[in-house]
Simulated scan of single mutants.
Amino acid sequence: MKLNLDIQPLSSWVNVTNEPLIISGPCSAETEEQLLSTAHLLKATGKVSVLRAGIWKPRTRPGEFEGIGSIGLEWLKRAKEETGLPTAVEVATAKHVEEALAAGVDILWVGARTTANPFSVQEIADALRGHDVPVLVKNPVNPDLSLWIGALERINNAGIKKIGAIHRGFSSFEKSSFRNEPMWELAIQLKTHCPELPIINDPSHICGNRELIPYIAQKALDLDMQGLMIESHIDPSVAWTDAKQQVTPAALAELVERFSIRQPESKNEAFADKLADLRKQIDKIDDLVIQKLGERMAIVEKIGEFKRDNNVTILQVHRWDEIMKRRGAFASALKLDPNFTEKFLELIHSESIRKQTLIMNKDKTAATIVEVAPPVQI
């Protein structure tokens, strides 16, 4: 499925002084002095192309600091005048859009909580109609690609052609080292559906702590994301929100300096020929893997028929445990990642159960269909 979004390239709506695009600034605008001081230090690094700051902060629970409000837009405007950096803020309502545009904000972004609500996204889209302003859409809190795509489509349908996505990770019940699980596969799927869509990675919100940011940021660049949104505060230890995930402007400069910038393609003919050869080898192996999976499922169907005829349940837990132990050990010996092996085997097992369930209930399903089907009128 390809998305038919009408998009202008990133280079046409933001001046990237250095690659990659770096959007940085405090999680929250707290005071005028804090915002201006941070902005000047970020400008001095020569690494930042856009200044960001949270003006309205949608918090999970009431009573927490929910942003300084509209007064912060005046501080942001002054920071822009003094540093020359274009500015970006999050908007969650039509009123936010109107106030931000009136204050001369250059780039708007839709937050993860807002993206999850189509009513809110449509309200923002309606407020944007008739304006020519870049808009970035963060992924929804939960891993729902359709919801993310839907938000992008709503904004684009309002006439916004300068549009991009922000990958900030997804909430998960599983405990992890990350604040939000990256779930890179969803960002990759989005890029596959719309190759021309710029995707900016937000390692600050994925990591939740500054120590992990270099790893996530580099991986995002290696996956050909067009930029990074990294939160920076003049003194993170006293930040009013998300203190652990913010870095100082000096630390940001060091981080960006260490990035390895790689190109999506190489003009070297020898490289291209070698890469094509290796990909042919992979294609042959993939074909063989699919062929063997087909053969395996044919045997699964025979097992399903055998179990049905002998009135045996589909699932035998001891057999599954045996598969996981033996195949897991074999995969480990072949230096395959244990998590990958487990997910791969679980997918195969789920498909095997699905096929056997169809076989077990084939006659019952057919009988049910005959029973509930309306009579044919001749």
Rank of each mutant, 00 (worst) to 15 (best):
V141W: 00
G111I: 10
N339F: 08
K95Q: 13
G69L: 10
H96F: 03
E174S: 14
E32N: 10
P236W: 08
T357P: 05
L358D: 13
L21M: 12
W148P: 07
A116M: 12
I71H: 01
C194Y: 06
N310T: 15
F271D: 13
T17D: 00
P374T: 10
L334G: 03
V105Y: 05
S332I: 00
I200A: 05
W184A: 00
E98S: 14
Q316G: 08
R279C: 09
V370R: 14
H349T: 14
V238C: 09
L51Y: 01
P20K: 11
R319P: 01
F119Q: 14
F330K: 08
E74P: 02
A158R: 03
K364T: 11
K191M: 00
A100W: 06
V97A: 10
D287G: 15
S232D: 06
V300L: 03
I378L: 14
L10K: 00
E371T: 13
D202F: 00
P203K: 02
E174F: 09
M1V: 10
L10A: 00
D222V: 02
F178W: 05
W13Y: 15
A250H: 08
D126K: 15
L228C: 00
I314R: 12
I216M: 01
A44S: 15
S232C: 15
K343V: 13
G328H: 03
K175M: 10
S12A: 08
I285K: 11
E99P: 03
S37K: 13
D126P: 00
L358E: 14
C194P: 04
E254Y: 04
L288T: 11
L101E: 04
D277R: 12
K284T: 11
Q218E: 12
T115Q: 08
I68S: 11
T192A: 15
L358F: 10
S37H: 10
W56A: 10
L35M: 12
L228K: 00
W240D: 11
V14E: 02
A276I: 04
A329I: 10
I303L: 15
H167A: 01
K280Y: 12
P198L: 03
P182H: 00
A239V: 09
V133C: 01
A44D: 15
P143C: 02
G84I: 04
G150P: 03
I234A: 09
E346V: 10
